[in-house]
């Protein structure tokens, strides 16, 4: 599972340069949370497009951990990029005042989608493409808000497992305090990814890697000593959240249907 971080960096930097330029943009916007993934995406973005062409958005809600917000600001300053800090509490609170709930997940998803909405708004204001920050582990496990943090135009991190992002971060010179932080979506106080998923990244990544990258079977993993409950839990999550990884289903009526036999590349005509 180890990666050659230098080679990965070169590939992702070239990818961002090529893809963003092709669509007629010079700039990228990134939501910075103070966590590892968005920091790594921002480091790559700056190397690809230059610090003057990355715009960072720091979007705290009233329950956000202050330390994360400070760290996000620090990262923006270290990278020397323009950043906007916008408190999204008013619009979230007004919504839940009118539509009350105490379901943390509903509130968390709403926050994630509000951030997406602000990031896309700023992408238009800044004439920039939205650079995504979802890693392969969360994409496979469906650990992200659909049309929230999972939304972006280009996602340089989508083929790297979380543990590989740690490696890449160290190579890129991401500050230690970011690398050492416990991964968290910070959608409510005390939330951590591993507690919420009930899985350790180290194990989840290995299981996903063996099954999907190395094409091992469930039985292979169990005979290798992996706990069958954990393996099944992971496989079920991957299946259950397949919908988050594809576009909405369109029922076929005509002879040429989007998503079925209307087969054009994304990079069509750019």
């Amino acid at each position: 599972m180890k990666i050659n971080s230098k080679l990965v960096e070169k590939t992702l930097v070239e990818f961002l340069k090529d893809e963003i330029k092709k669509f007629g943009f010079k700039k990228g916007v990134i939501g910075l949370s103070g966590g590892l993934d968005s920091t790594v995406a921002a480091f790559l973005g700056v190397r690809a497009l230059g610090k003057d062409n990355i715009v960072a958005l720091i979007l705290p809600y009233k329950t956000s951990n202050k330390k994360n917000i400070d760290d996000a600001e620090d990262i923006a300053k270290i990278l020397g990029v323009k950043y906007f800090k916008i408190d999204i509490t008013p619009q979230i609170d007004v919504y839940f005042k009118n539509n009350p709930t105490d379901n943390k997940l509903l509130i968390g998803n709403k926050i994630a989608r509000e951030r997406m909405s602000v990031i896309f708004d700023y992408s238009a204001r800044e004439k920039a493409m939205v650079i995504g920050t979802s890693n392969k582990t969360e994409l496979l496990l469906g650990y992200g808000t659909w049309y929230g943090d999972l939304a972006s135009s280009v996602n340089p991190l989508g083929d790297l497992y979380k543990t590989q992002i740690f490696e890449l971060a160290a190579h890129l010179g991401v500050p230690e305090k970011i690398i050492k932080k416990t991964p968290s979506a910070d959608l409510w106080p005390g939330q951590t990814d591993e507690d919420e998923m009930g899985l350790k990244y180290e194990i989840a990544d290995k299981v996903l890697y063996l099954i999907f990258d190395k094409r091992k079977t469930r039985e292979d993993l169990i005979s290798m000593g992996y706990d069958n409950k954990i393996v099944d839990k992971i496989l079920n999550l991957v299946k259950r959240y397949q919908f988050k990884r594809v576009l909405p289903i369109i029922p076929k009526l005509s002879h040429r249907t989007i998503g079925k036999d209307f087969l054009y590349p994304r990079d069509w005509g750019v």
């Binding site: 590939t11 070239e14 990818f15 090529d18 893809e19 092709k22 590349p265 994304r266 990079d267």
Partner: peptide, 8 residues
């Protein structure tokens, strides 16, 4: 060289 739909 170059990228198309994420294929490098």
């Amino acid at each position: 060289v170059g990228f198309e739909d994420g294929f490098g």
